[in-house]
Design a protein around this nucleic acid. Structure first.
Lengths: 226, 226
DNA sequence: GCATTTTTTTGGGGAAAGCCAAAAATATTT
DNA sequence: AAATATTTTTGGCTTTCCCCAAAAAAATGC
């Protein structure tokens, strides 16, 4: 049985190795940064996780998850996102409130609880932030997606997810009238700072490049009426 | 903010002081026993809880909860019973499965979560074992109740709660076809071991005194048709 | 390619929660 | 009331997770 702390390390490792795509490697510093802990602490934990065969690691070497480690990490992500969905769908929390509470709930130890929760929620495939929820086998939907920073001016896009789940960012996004499934029209991209002008629900707004980089979308498929 | 361990001590103290009615006192041994911990460990924690003004305690003296301590303990019981109700009502767990999972869920730190859960469940007043759920103010229903061991032969009773929440006991109770709201007719009480013969749903069964002492009931109110 | 910078590890410690064995205080028995 | 038994506390030690400062290794810059 893993401690909450060990689970958090696995989760952080999955995030890091999945993030800067392809590499699949993580550093001690990076890991420590994610967990708000000192590098020395991360080193200790890495030794412990290596003992348990959850990470591949040797001193000064790069860190990767073993298959077992990755499966466990995916299971934790699954629990986190299911709880977020519960809080949002059933208890009426807003999307900027769910993350912190789910951080606690994800560590509840009961296989059966997770499976029943999943069924109760109707086997949701995405959480309130648009992130895919792994199913009981660890499989989840990989959607083709791009950030608003990568879009082409003149096209229409549908918002499908946010990268940053922090309350302050989510509140900002809500405040400008944007949410998952919003449709936006790309009006202009300014050269000097790459900020963007777009239209959403008939309103024209500007967003910074930084914000744009944290919002995922896909080209809006035009419905054909025949 | 209290640690999970501290919360468990408060809960145990509330149970002990409420149990052997009137006294309102607990001993170190008793407390340690309830928490599966050594008396030495309990002593340490009592000092800590005294620091935080949650218990009245001085060495070799009797232990009582302060008002703050009691309020916190009631809040923990509230959370525990609400989660049990959630697991039972919404996720379809059986009454012998809910306790252990609720032991974990009760420590999730979020006032708002508890209040929303309460509303989602429709402000339930009793948990799946028939125990009263304190409301947000800490008030709960005090039902007049007696154990099956205290009933009079010849009368009819409605089961309203169980004292022992262990899976093995609850499974036994279910197995004999008994549950909350069951109606039973007291047929006989045997002198030699105080075991009881009763009828439930048309079936006659015998239960030991020990079992009888762990089941709460109230006289069945006969419905009058006019 | 060598010096500097950055990253990572080591070694030594601390707080929380637990344990044990022995001492001290309180209760009980005769 | 003294002797015995029980309960409770003390003091010392363990494990988990965290920290810091210093040393070691690796990466980077010129």
């Amino acid at each position: 049985m893993l401690s909450d702390t060990e689970e958090n390390y696995l989760k952080a490792l999955l995030r890091i190795t999945a993030e800067h795509d392809g590499a699949g490697e993580a550093g001690t510093n990076q890991l420590a940064g994610k967990l708000n802990v000192r590098p020395a602490t991360a080193t200790d934990m890495l030794k412990k996780l290596r003992e348990k065969q959850l990470v591949n690691y040797e001193k000064y070497g790069k860190i990767t998850l073993t298959d077992t480690g990755r499966n466990l990490a995916v299971a934790i992500i699954r629990r986190h996102r299911l709880w977020e969905t519960f809080l949002f769908d059933k208890l009426g929390f807003s999307w900027d409130e769910v993350h912190d509470i789910a951080e606690q709930l994800e560590h509840i130890k009961s296989e059966k609880l997770v499976e029943r929760l999943d069924r109760f929620l109707g086997f949701p495939q995405f959480d309130p932030h648009g992130d895919a929820i792994p199913n009981a086998d660890g499989d989840y939907i990989h959607e083709a997606r791009l950030t608003l920073a990568e879009t082409a001016v003149g096209n229409r896009y549908t918002i499908i997810a946010v990268k940053d789940n922090s309350p302050s960012f989510l509140q900002y996004v809500s405040q400008i009238g944007m949410g998952i499934h919003s449709e936006v029209a790309m009006l202009h991209r300014y050269d000097f700072d790459h900020s963007i002008a777009l239209e959403i629900e008939g309103t024209k707004i500007n967003i910074s490049d930084k914000v744009a980089q944290n919002i995922y979308c896909k080209p809006t498929e035009l419905t054909t009426y025949d």
